[in-house]
């Protein structure tokens, strides 16, 4: 029973991460920009959040700590996502290449920054890439000793907002038009560049929060040399499985969340222990599942038609 509770908790934690980041990817791709760089954005968001959690006084009210950390994650994520915006929108660069570079850059930059801070703080003796935040993390939990945290509430709010924004507002209509048929959008006076920047920046904000949630999932310190272990890419798989639709993304995220959670808590289930699978199999499971899911869903996927294609005004 206790194990099932634990499984549910971890499932919700990882599903929150995946939902947030996949929604970020969804907004970027709906505007027409493929965001392979989510992994790097997550790392930078995590860095922003970790710096706040590591420095802020644990005596402050939990909600203040929470808001400060989230805000930092958003700012870091958005600033970093500008790299993609500039490359893809202004310079019409290969979006896959730019995204890949961002993933490497995010990891290297975060490592360098954290190490430099640790070196400076310790006078050269500590050159680890870790930030610890045991006390502050506890303040974010809704119930001590569990994984239920304020982030889950935030995720639910963001999910609802993302749905409404996309389908019920002028902004959403215009954003989707830019990802489907930028020439059409431009011909009715919509600035494709602005909408795409909006999409990329939203993905930066959501990816940043996702990174923060990831590094607080069951641990109270982040090692930036490791990054976020491919979660940015799992989120892309979630997004594809969710067919670029917020309400389906959350279901896909829950499915993936279960498999990721199993890697943490598999030893408590009798029937799983009976299978006697080695731990690496559980570690691989989310990636294997996503490969299988992609194999079955990619053939008829309804990706935004114009994603990945730089928009050139003169090609109307």
């Amino acid at each position: 029973m206790q194990q099932i509770m634990l499984l549910i908790q971890y499932t919700l934690v990882y599903a929150s991460v995946l939902t947030l980041v996949a929604l970020g990817g969804c907004y970027s791709e709906r505007s027409g920009v493929i965001n392979i760089g989510l992994e790097g954005i997550m790392v930078m968001g995590a860095l922003g959040g970790a710096l706040v959690l590591g420095c802020i006084s644990p005596d402050l009210p939990g909600i203040v700590i929470f808001l400060a950390a989230v805000l930092a994650a958003i700012v870091f994520g958005m600033l970093f996502s500008l790299l993609l915006g500039v490359a893809a929108i202004n310079f019409k660069a290969d979006q896959t290449l730019a995204g890949t570079a961002m993933n490497m850059l995010g990891l290297a930059l975060a490592t360098v920054i954290v190490k430099a801070l640790n070196i400076a703080a310790s006078g050269g003796s500590n050159n680890s890439a870790e930030i610890a935040y045991t006390a502050t993390r506890e303040k974010l939990l809704l119930a001590q000793g569990t994984e239920f945290s304020m982030f889950m509430i935030l995720t639910a709010i963001i999910l609802a907002a993302a749905y409404v924004l996309l389908y019920k507002t002028r902004f959403g209509l215009r954003l989707m038009a830019c990802g489907e048929h930028p020439q059409a959008a431009n011909s009715v006076g919509i600035s494709v560049a602005k909408m795409r920047y909006a999409g990329v920046l939203i993905s930066g904000a959501l990816g940043g929060i996702g990174g923060l949630v990831y590094i607080t999932a069951g641990v109270s310190k982040a090692n930036f040399e490791v990054g976020v272990a491919g979660f940015g890419f799992l989120a892309l798989a979630v997004m594809i499985f969710g067919q670029w639709k917020p309400h389906r993304i959350v279901l896909a995220a829950l499915l993936f969340g279960v498999f990721r959670a199993l890697a943490n808590v598999n030893n408590g289930f009798d029937f799983l222990t009976a299978l006697n699978l080695p731990q690496p199999v559980y570690n691989m499971l989310p990636y294997i599942i996503s490969l299988i899911v992609l194999a079955f869903t990619s053939k008829n996927s309804h990706a935004p038609k114009a994603e990945g294609i730089p928009y050139d005004k003169s090609t109307r």
Partner: peptide, 25 residues
């Protein structure tokens, strides 16, 4: 045609000059 295929006829017509209250269609 400059039409967004996944949109309805109505959405295509109003795109760019959407009647709205505070951004809501």
């Amino acid at each position: 045609f400059k039409l967004v295929e996944i949109f309805s006829v109505l959405d295509n017509i109003i795109l760019g000059v959407e009647p709205n209250t505070a951004g809501f269609l």
